[in-house]
Design a protein around this nucleic acid. Structure first.
Length: 478
RNA sequence: CGAGGUGUGGCUCAGUUUGGUAGAGCGCUGCGUUCGGGACGCAGAAGCCGCAAGUUCAAGUCUUGUCACCUCGACCA
């Protein structure tokens, strides 16, 4: 037979141009559209459905760990933003300001929240009086605005959707424990629901959040070897509490400042999913958050009984799975490609031959493996196949990270690796910001984190040769 | 924000050098034939050429400005 003619332009191959591949996928999978506001994106139904699934899953994990949802205003008066110095220094350059209400100029301008620490603190000052009021475990789902100079869909946009948890605790220990607990919640979620392996660790002083005592991070590696900071959890100590005069009467009847945390993940996770799992045919979605987990494609659907039978399968499966029957009037091949582009984890093909044999063909998106399944035990086969897709994605992502993780013992080696490869570089560090900056200036590579699981590569700093304090993962980032 | 690039039906682009009645493929609509990896035929709809000024008898094409997007740097979730 003649070669199949290409009707639709394919997306750019990952190896040819990863950045272009990314934007192609984001557009062709109908996740977003560009809007008429610079740097702001329209999240389309298919993209938003992924976010809804992420929200639903994470929100349940937050509730399980005792958190409550609230909603804070989107405006912050300038005076409030300025109460904590490091914080305002960190965010002031990238906030949007509201200066007028209608035609009236405001006496105090309002910023559109870039993050809500200050609003939560302002409120906490009012409602926290006693140790009996602690802990306060609040979270909010909202959007924030940061006037970024260069933007990319999901990875960095001027407005983005996220959740921000803000908690207050009686003791330092409790707050630190909360900080680490939420980092674990994020890491577990990434592994169990997004099939994304992440490194847990602490940010260096240079990279930590504006106003935080310590910042913890989960770092994922994208398919091209570039890092993505996928979630952060901060311990604030009592710095904000002092700045906002939040006090409580302790068990000893003395006034004390509570200890604070905040933690967040954003729609950036969707960018992470795309760049972790996607391939040259488009998106590949982890089953737990895929808007459509299974698509049924009837073959020769005009023939007697095919559509009826396909519809029967649809009715059976929808009780347990997010399933879609594609009975549009396109050719099966066209539908295959379309749903591969959109990353649907499983495809079921059902044609006259199958119906004759009481079977269907189940095809995995991650490796295109085809299995013939008896219709008698379809539900369990689908369930197993979805799990296999999840595991397959996780293993592949983990292998990619391992293959792209290098070790540098001295500076020359570090420079050589960073010039030749994208990936994580493990190297020892003395703890001085000076060395961190030198490494960045020379190689363009930044510190990702000091991992919780450190290795003793050597006893000397890779940069200055002085005694090393910790091992650091280094890498380029999105 | 610095350097480079691109803006022409929904999409990808040709046309700009040398100003002279807006093109192609795909997609879309209708009808028919097809259907196990992006099917085929016939008929049709759809663009004041990113936007704004200017030069000219005449501007997609020349000039100036402006906006958006892409790539690479500096900054960030």
């Amino acid at each position: 037979m003649a070669q199949q003619k290409k009707l639709v332009e394919e997306i750019t191959s990952m190896n040819e141009d990863f950045a272009k591949w990314y934007t192609d996928v984001v557009k062709k999978a109908e996740l977003i559209d560009y809007s008429s506001v610079r740097g702001c994106m329209i999240i389309r139904p298919y993209g938003y459905a992924i976010w809804e699934n992420i929200q639903k899953d994470l929100d349940a994990r937050f509730k399980q760990t005792g958190h409550e949802n609230v909603y804070m205003p989107m405006f912050i008066p300038e005076s409030l933003l300025q109460k904590e110095k490091d914080h305002v220094d960190g965010f002031a350059p990238e906030v949007a300001w509201v200066t007028h209400g209608g035609k009236e100029k405001l006496t105090e301008r309002l910023c559109v929240r870039p993050t809500s620490e200050t609003l939560f603190c302002d409120h906490y000052a009012n409602i926290i009086q006693s140790y009996r009021d602690l802990p306060k475990l609040y979270n909010q789902w909202c959007s924030v605005v940061r006037w970024e100079k260069t933007t990319r869909p999901f990875l960095r946009s001027v407005e983005f959707l996220w959740q921000e948890g803000h908690t207050m605790h009686e003791t330092k220990e409790q707050a630190e424990q909360e900080t680490l607990q939420m980092l674990d919640v994020y890491a577990d979620f990434c592994k169990e629901s997004l099939a994304m392996p992440v490194l847990k660790g602490q940010k260096t002083d240079k990279e930590k959040f504006a106003g935080a005592v310590s910042t913890y991070t989960i770092e994922a590696m994208m398919h091209d070897g570039v890092a993505l900071q996928s979630g952060t959890s901060h311990y604030f100590g009592d710095g904000f509490a002092k700045a906002f005069n939040i006090t409580f009467t302790g068990r000893d009847n003395k006034l004390a400042f509570p200890h604070q945390t905040s933690w967040g993940v954003s729609t950036r996770l969707i960018g992470g999913i795309i760049m972790t799992h996607g391939d040259d045919s488009g998106l590949v979605l982890p089953p737990a958050v895929a808007p459509v987990q299974v698509v049924i494609i009837p073959i020769a659907q005009h023939k007697e009984g095919v559509l009826e039978k396909a519809n029967g399968l649809f009715e059976r499966l929808r009780a347990q799975f997010r399933v879609k029957l594609d009975d549009r009037d396109n050719s099966p091949g066209w539908k295959f490609s379309e749903h591969e582009m959109k990353g649907v984890p499983l495809r079921i093909e059902l044609g006259p031959k199958d119906i004759e044999n009481n079977q269907c063909v189940v095809v995995r998106r991650d490796n295109r493996e085809k299995t013939i399944v008896s219709l008698d035990n379809l539900e369990s086969a689908v369930s197993e196949a979805l799990k296999a897709v999840h595991d397959g994605l996780y293993e592949r992502a983990l292998k990619n990270r391992e293959d792209r993780t290098y070790t540098a013992k001295d500076f020359d080696e570090f420079v050589k690796i960073s010039n030749e490869k994208n990936g994580f570089i493990k190297a020892m560090w003395c703890g001085e910001t000076e060395c961190e900056e030198k490494i960045k200036d020379v190689t363009g590579v930044k510190s990702r984190c000091i991992p919780f699981e450190e290795e003793q590569i050597s006893d000397k700093c890779v940069c200055c040769g002085k005694p090393a304090k910790s091992m650091v993962f280094w890498g380029k980032q999105y």
